[in-house]
Design a protein around this nucleic acid. Structure first.
Length: 198
DNA sequence: GAGTAGATCGGCT
DNA sequence: GCCGATCTACTCG
C-alpha cells in the first residue's frame, strides 16, 4: 500500500519525520526492486531552520524542489561524491523536507550488495544517508520526481510503539547555531541499522 | 574501539 | 574561494 498524497501535506514536518519510521522505501530501476524499512529520519524546516538549505525561504537552483507540493523526492549532491535523499513535505511555497538517514534492508538485498560492492548485511550496507541512496540506486537523477510514481515510493509498513521512538539532535549541522540543538532526529531504539547511537 | 585525513565537486558568497 | 545534512581507509593501541 503506497502512501497517498495527503500523508505528505502535513504542515508539521516533525510529524512526518516521526511517522515515516517503520514505513518502507522502495525503488524499482531496470526491473530491480529494492526496499528497506525506514529506521532513522531528520526534519528540516526551510522557513525557520538555519540547518535547511532553503533557510530562510530562499529559492535557488538547488532548493526549488523543496518549494513544491509535498510528495516529491529532493536529492542533492554533497562532499563531491554523495547523494542524499529527502522527502518533500507541506504545501506549495513551504520548503520543508525529511532526510532519510537509514533503512533496514528488506527486498532486493542481492542488488544492494552489488551496488555497495560488499557482501554483508549490516549497518554498513544501508545505515547512513549516503549508504542507503547507493544501495537503493538513488541519485540526483531522481530529484523532483513524484513519490507516487513507479520508480521510487514509500509504502505502509508497521507502526512502531511510541516507547521505541528515540529523539536526538541532528547529525552534522553544527554550522546552524542554536538550531543545531533542535531535537529533530528520530530513530528506532536499538535498531542495528541506525547510523550512530545516542 | 577511537581518532583523523583525504577524497572530490556543485552551490553559493 | 570556501565548505558541506558523508564515507572510507588507515593509524594506534
Amino acid at each position: 500500500m503506497k502512501l497517498t498524497k495527503d500523508f505528505y501535506l502535513d504542515q508539521d514536518v516533525t510529524n512526518i519525520a516521526k511517522h515515516l519510521l517503520g514505513k518502507v522505501l522502495v525503488t524499482r530501476l531496470d526491473d530491480k526492486l529494492t526496499s528497506g524499512i525506514i529506521v532513522e529520519t531528520e526534519a528540516y524546516c526551510g522557513r525557520t531552520d538555519r540547518a535547511s538549505h532553503a533557510f530562510p525561504n530562499k529559492v535557488t537552483g538547488r532548493t526549488q524542489t523543496m518549494f513544491k507540493e509535498g510528495g516529491l523526492a529532493y536529492i542533492y549532491f554533497v562532499y563531491g561524491m554523495h547523494h542524499l535523499f529527502n522527502v518533500v513535505t507541506n504545501l506549495v511555497g513551504q520548503p520543508d523536507a525529511v532526510l532519510i538517514r537509514s533503512v533496514e534492508p528488506t527486498q532486493g538485498v542481492k542488488w544492494m550488495k552489488k551496488r555497495r560492492r560488499m557482501d554483508r548485511v549490516d549497518r554498513f550496507l544501508t545505515g547512513g544517508p549516503a549508504r542507503l541512496t547507493q544501495a537503493l540506486g538513488i541519485s540526483v537523477n531522481f530529484n523532483g520526481i513524484s513519490l507516487l510514481g513507479d520508480q521510487i515510493w514509500i509504502e505502509e509498513g508497521y507502526q512502531p510503539s511510541s516507547n521505541l521512538i528515540m529523539v536526538s539532535t541532528r547529525v552534522g549541522v553544527d554550522y546552524a547555531g542554536t538550531d543545531a540543538q533542535l531535537p529533530w532526529r528520530y530513530f528506532l531504539k536499538e535498531n542495528p541499522f541506525v547510523s550512530k547511537g545516542l
